[in-house]
Structure formats: structure tokens, C-alpha cells
């Protein structure tokens, strides 16, 4: 637990007037408020510090106490004595702070002013946003399905639409931490983390895969069957197909997010596999072919 210089946090002098404190707080709040910095944990943390500094410095009693004992907070005995001498004057704190959570006041603040140390705050504050990551396989991301998540002991059933993208964030409004002084609850943000697939690569709504064909099918043409994410597909390979040839299977790609029935395309790249462990006869025939050219 470290001493926190609240004046430094607000960027003001120790002699700052109440008006200057208010001005400095407003200025920083505009810069760091969670509404203006969605998904920015760093800004959120700084905003809490600024908020705490304002909580102390804008209250004449707390400011006086902080100025007197702030740096000597480690001298617990003296501090406690001082606290007792001040009696219950500081106990006008609101129980609303029980909802504010440990993370919203530093341990330094709690040590100095107690857990109920906050004065009756006029301002409503929105609850903290929660962030979570949800891992999905490519197959799971392909279909609209429901999942039950447990957030703070509450079960939330969410519908994950088909076609959700890796890194995509969805917001569940009001499922974050409760607000303060009647402020609204925060939001719950879920970031989807779609694991890489060993066969298919996804680019937007399109899928990419490689299919291996043997030399004879590549040369003479023929049929080959591939496994797609939506089942087996029979392909007709044109004669003299080169290794690296790319074909497009329209509508066999990934579902388009929130556009039911629409799919991207599947691109298949052929890789021609050369025969190995040739028999003497095969070698002779290939030599014959070579000599023909």
C-alpha cells in the first residue's frame, strides 16, 4: 500500500481552491470517463484514481485530514487515535458504497477513511464494465447457438449468432457491476476468440482449404471428394490441373454474420501429390513419357 498524492493525481497545487479542484476534476473526468473510453482498462483505472482524489479533496473535512496525516498514514496508532477523536463525524457515509466494489477505492483510501468513508455523493456513477473472453471452435462459430455464462453468480443465456468473427466484441447492456447511488449498471463485454482450424482458414466470410489430388487425376482429370464444414462435396478435377490451382465453391464458405441463409465462398487450392516408391515398371513408363517430350 503506497501513499497516493491526490494533488498530483489531479495535477493541482496543494494550495488549490475548491473551484480549482472542481475544474481539474472535470477536466480529467472528461478525458478519462469510461463513457468516453470504452474498453480502455487503463483509462478506467485512472478515472477511479481521479475520482478518489476528488472524493477526498473536494470534501473540506477529508482534505484537512489528508493534508494533516496523509503522508504519515503508516503511523496507524496515531492515525487511529486521531480518527477516534474526530468521533462519528465521518460516519455519514452512505451504504451505497458497498456496491462500489473494492476496486473503486485504493487500499490507501480505505486505510485513511474506512470502507464507509465516502460522503454522500450526489453524482450517480455507472457500474464497472465486465470483460470476458469466450473461446469458440470454427465449427461452433458456424451455427447460431446458445450458451449459458455465469457472471457474478448469475446465469446469463446468450445467443451467439452464426458468423461471429475472431476478436469480435458483443455487449450485454446492464450485465456489468451495479451502479452507485442509483446509477446504471455497467455492461458486460464478451470478446470471441475463435481457435485456428487445422484444415480451414477463414478470411471474412470466405474459407480456404487445400485439397490433395494424385498425379493421375491432375493429369487426366477425374473426381475427388473433399470434406467441407457443411459436409462432403464431390469435385470434378479438370484434366491437366496444375498444383496450386484454386477453385471457388460458391456459398460453401462461412455464414454471413446476422444475415441468415447467406454464406461466403470456399476456395480450394489443389496440391498435386507425386507418386513415391516407384516400381521398375513405373520408372520405365515415366522414362518413356519423358522421352516422348
Amino acid at each position: 500500500m503506497e501513499f497516493i498524492d491526490y494533488y498530483k493525481v489531479l495535477g493541482i497545487e496543494k494550495t488549490a481552491s475548491a473551484e480549482e479542484i472542481k475544474k481539474a476534476y472535470r477536466k480529467l473526468a472528461r478525458k478519462l470517463h469510461p463513457d468516453l473510453n470504452p474498453n480502455d482498462k487503463d483509462a478506467h483505472k485512472k478515472f477511479q484514481q481521479v475520482n478518489e482524489a476528488n472524493e477526498v479533496l473536494s470534501d473540506p473535512d477529508k482534505r484537512k485530514k489528508y493534508d494533516q496525516y496523509g503522508k504519515d498514514w503508516q503511523h496507524a496508532d496515531q492515525f487511529e487515535q486521531q480518527r477516534q477523536q474526530q468521533g462519528n463525524t465521518q460516519q455519514g457515509g452512505t451504504q451505497d458504497y458497498s456496491n462500489f466494489g473494492d476496486q473503486d477505492f485504493s487500499s490507501f483510501f480505505e486505510s485513511m477513511f474506512g470502507q464507509g468513508g465516502g460522503r454522500q455523493r450526489q453524482t450517480k456513477f455507472r457500474g464497472q464494465d465486465y470483460q470476458a473472453q469466450l473461446q469458440l471452435s470454427l465449427e461452433a462459430a458456424m451455427t447460431t447457438h446458445q450458451q449459458v455464462l455465469t457472471v457474478n453468480g448469475k446465469n446469463i443465456r446468450i445467443t451467439i449468432p452464426a458468423g461471429v468473427e475472431n476478436g469480435q466484441v458483443i455487449k450485454l447492456a446492464g450485465y456489468g457491476a451495479p451502479g452507485v447511488n442509483g446509477g446504471p449498471a455497467g455492461d458486460f463485454y464478451i470478446t470471441f476468440n475463435i481457435t485456428a482450424h487445422p484444415v480451414f482458414k477463414r478470411l471474412g466470410d470466405d474459407l480456404y482449404m487445400t485439397a490433395t489430388i494424385d498425379l493421375y487425376t491432375a493429369l487426366l482429370g477425374g473426381d475427388t471428394t473433399i470434406d467441407t464444414l457443411s459436409g462432403k462435396v464431390k469435385l470434378t478435377v479438370a484434366p491437366e490441373t496444375q498444383s496450386g490451382t484454386k477453385i471457388r465453391l460458391k456459398g460453401k464458405g462461412f455464414p454471413v454474420y446476422k444475415k441468415e441463409g447467406q454464406h461466403g465462398d470456399l476456395y480450394v487450392t489443389y496440391t498435386v501429390q507425386l507418386p513415391v516408391n516407384l516400381s521398375d515398371k513405373e520408372k520405365a513408363l515415366f522414362t518413356e513419357l519423358k522421352n516422348l517430350k
Partner: peptide, 28 residues
Amino acid sequence: LPQLEKMVRLYYEMDINMEGIETINHLL
């Protein structure tokens, strides 16, 4: 409602005027 509550916070807690809110909303 979440959008409206956000606007209330910007206007009343942060003293941002209507023009400022429009600009912030656009930038967000």
C-alpha cells in the same frame, strides 16, 4: 436507455454541451 443515460452523464456530470455531445458521439 443506455444511450440516453450516457448522454445524461456527459451533459450533467461532465458539463459537456449539446454540440460537444454530438461531436463525441460521432467520434465514438
